[in-house]
Protein backbone atom coordinates (compact mmCIF):
# COMPACT_ATOMS: atom_id res chain seq x y z
CA UNK A 1 0.00 0.00 0.00
CA UNK A 2 1.05 3.58 -0.64
CA UNK A 3 1.36 5.42 2.65
CA UNK A 4 -0.62 8.69 3.05
CA UNK A 5 2.61 10.63 3.32
CA UNK A 6 3.86 9.24 0.00
CA UNK A 7 0.56 10.10 -1.67
CA UNK A 8 0.79 13.63 -0.23
CA UNK A 9 4.33 14.08 -1.56
CA UNK A 10 3.43 12.66 -4.96
CA UNK A 11 0.41 14.91 -5.45
CA UNK A 12 2.68 17.91 -5.90
CA UNK A 13 4.21 16.22 -8.95
CA UNK A 14 0.89 15.08 -10.39
CA UNK A 15 -0.41 18.65 -10.41
CA UNK A 16 2.48 19.73 -12.67
CA UNK A 17 1.54 17.25 -15.41
CA UNK A 18 -2.29 17.22 -15.35
CA UNK A 19 -3.97 18.73 -18.38
CA UNK A 20 -0.78 18.88 -20.40
CA UNK A 21 -0.65 17.54 -23.95
CA UNK A 22 2.05 15.52 -25.63
CA UNK A 23 2.73 12.91 -28.29
CA UNK A 24 3.30 9.15 -28.15
CA UNK A 25 7.01 8.32 -28.57
CA UNK A 26 6.60 4.59 -27.87
CA UNK A 27 4.00 2.21 -26.46
CA UNK A 28 3.58 -1.33 -25.15
CA UNK A 29 0.78 -3.57 -23.94
CA UNK A 30 1.52 -5.21 -20.60
CA UNK A 31 0.23 -8.79 -20.29
CA UNK A 32 2.16 -9.98 -17.20
CA UNK A 33 1.70 -7.47 -14.38
CA UNK A 34 2.56 -7.26 -10.69
CA UNK A 35 -0.18 -8.13 -8.16
CA UNK A 36 -1.30 -4.50 -7.81
CA UNK A 37 -2.02 -4.18 -11.54
CA UNK A 38 -3.03 -7.78 -12.27
CA UNK A 39 -6.77 -7.02 -12.50
CA UNK A 40 -6.19 -4.32 -15.14
CA UNK A 41 -4.01 -6.52 -17.41
CA UNK A 42 -3.62 -6.45 -20.31
CA UNK A 43 -3.21 -2.66 -20.33
CA UNK A 44 -1.39 -0.12 -22.47
CA UNK A 45 1.62 1.96 -21.38
CA UNK A 46 2.82 4.94 -23.38
CA UNK A 47 5.98 7.02 -23.29
CA UNK A 48 4.93 10.61 -23.90
CA UNK A 49 6.87 13.70 -24.88
CA UNK A 50 5.05 16.72 -23.46
CA UNK A 51 5.00 20.13 -25.14
CA UNK A 52 7.87 21.31 -22.92
CA UNK A 53 9.92 18.30 -24.21
CA UNK A 54 9.73 16.60 -20.80
CA UNK A 55 9.04 12.87 -21.14
CA UNK A 56 6.68 10.90 -18.91
CA UNK A 57 5.37 7.35 -18.75
CA UNK A 58 1.76 6.42 -18.01
CA UNK A 59 -1.17 4.23 -18.95
CA UNK A 60 -3.25 5.04 -22.00
CA UNK A 61 -6.98 4.73 -21.28
CA UNK A 62 -10.42 5.22 -22.86
CA UNK A 63 -9.42 4.76 -26.48
CA UNK A 64 -10.19 2.74 -29.57
CA UNK A 65 -7.40 0.14 -29.74
CA UNK A 66 -7.40 0.17 -33.55
CA UNK A 67 -6.32 3.80 -33.41
CA UNK A 68 -3.18 3.45 -31.29
CA UNK A 69 -0.05 4.62 -33.11
CA UNK A 70 3.25 6.44 -32.75
CA UNK A 71 3.03 10.24 -32.85
CA UNK A 72 -0.61 10.54 -31.73
CA UNK A 73 -1.55 13.45 -29.48
CA UNK A 74 -2.58 12.70 -25.88
CA UNK A 75 -3.66 14.61 -22.78
CA UNK A 76 -2.79 13.88 -19.13
CA UNK A 77 -5.85 13.06 -16.99
CA UNK A 78 -6.39 12.12 -13.35
CA UNK A 79 -7.33 8.48 -12.71
CA UNK A 80 -7.34 5.91 -9.94
CA UNK A 81 -4.12 3.99 -10.55
CA UNK A 82 -4.13 0.57 -8.90
CA UNK A 83 -5.87 -2.09 -6.86
CA UNK A 84 -6.03 -1.54 -3.11
CA UNK A 85 -7.18 -3.47 -0.07
CA UNK A 86 -10.54 -2.46 1.48
CA UNK A 87 -9.29 0.14 3.93
CA UNK A 88 -6.34 1.57 1.99
CA UNK A 89 -6.32 5.09 0.67
CA UNK A 90 -7.30 5.21 -3.02
CA UNK A 91 -4.21 6.34 -4.95
CA UNK A 92 -4.83 8.68 -7.90
CA UNK A 93 -2.29 9.46 -10.56
CA UNK A 94 -1.73 10.49 -14.15
CA UNK A 95 -2.98 8.47 -17.10
CA UNK A 96 -3.31 9.57 -20.71
CA UNK A 97 -6.22 9.92 -23.15
CA UNK A 98 -6.06 10.40 -26.91
CA UNK A 99 -7.22 13.93 -27.82
CA UNK A 100 -10.10 14.18 -30.26
CA UNK A 101 -8.26 15.70 -33.22
CA UNK A 102 -6.30 12.47 -33.91
Amino acid sequence: MLSPVKIWRRQKEIRKILGKEGIIISWTKIYVATDEFKKQAPYFIVLIELEDKKRVIGQLVDFDKEKLNFGLKVKAVLRRIKEIKEEDIIPYGVKFKLVDEN
Binding site: E13, I30, T34, F37, Y43, I45, G58, Q59, I81, G93
Partner: peptide
Protein backbone atom coordinates in the same frame (compact mmCIF):
# COMPACT_ATOMS: atom_id res chain seq x y z
CA UNK B 1 9.09 4.73 -8.65
CA UNK B 2 7.25 6.86 -11.21
CA UNK B 3 7.42 4.03 -13.75
CA UNK B 4 6.32 1.46 -11.15
CA UNK B 5 3.33 3.66 -10.31
CA UNK B 6 2.28 3.64 -13.96
CA UNK B 7 2.20 -0.17 -13.89
CA UNK B 8 5.29 -0.49 -16.07
CA UNK B 9 7.09 -3.81 -15.51
Amino acid sequence: SQEQEAGLT
